[in-house]
Amino acid sequence: MATNALGLFNAPSSALEAAGALKGAGFDSPTVISPIPIHGIDEVLGKKKSIIKRFTFFGALFGGIAGFALAAGTAVMYIHATGGRPIIAIPPFLIITYELTILCGILATVLGFILGSRLPAFKNRVYVPEVAVDKFAVTVLCEDPERLKRAHDILQSSGAEEIREVEGEQ
């Protein structure tokens, strides 16, 4: 299993500083683990492209088409004329369409979130319980002892309170 250097910080600003320094020193993907979302992390680690919006959009689109198809299709499959309305009555079916658009949009967003954030985690990943309370961790994968030493130095110079070596996937 791979070894990771992990530095604990008590402030988001110093964690960001360390992450930036690690990135500058050639570590390709330092991970910041924090109890709250950190503002301005995009400037340090680069903007993240999220696929969720595509999921939401196409999910909603699918839902809209499926909704109208459900209402119109089932009405045609077993014909019941009601109340002098046409079999395919547009205004009521638009309401079904609307609801299913939203339902499928929501479900697709969840799917996008699950896939995009690589959850649920089945393997052991780098984690220390302190980050769920008030500590900010910066961790980076180190293939060999030499890189581990360099990561250690960078974390320390950025003001890490504590530096650990943690086994696990990033």
Binding site: I33, S34, P37, I52, G105, G112, S117
Partner: peptide, 19 residues
């Protein structure tokens, strides 16, 4: 679900939640 609070996870959560 094995949430850790990494930068990627927060980012995804933010967008998914907003949508």
């Amino acid at each position: 679900l094995g949430w850790r609070g990494t930068d990627t996870e927060w980012n995804r959560l933010h967008w998914a939640y907003t949508f």
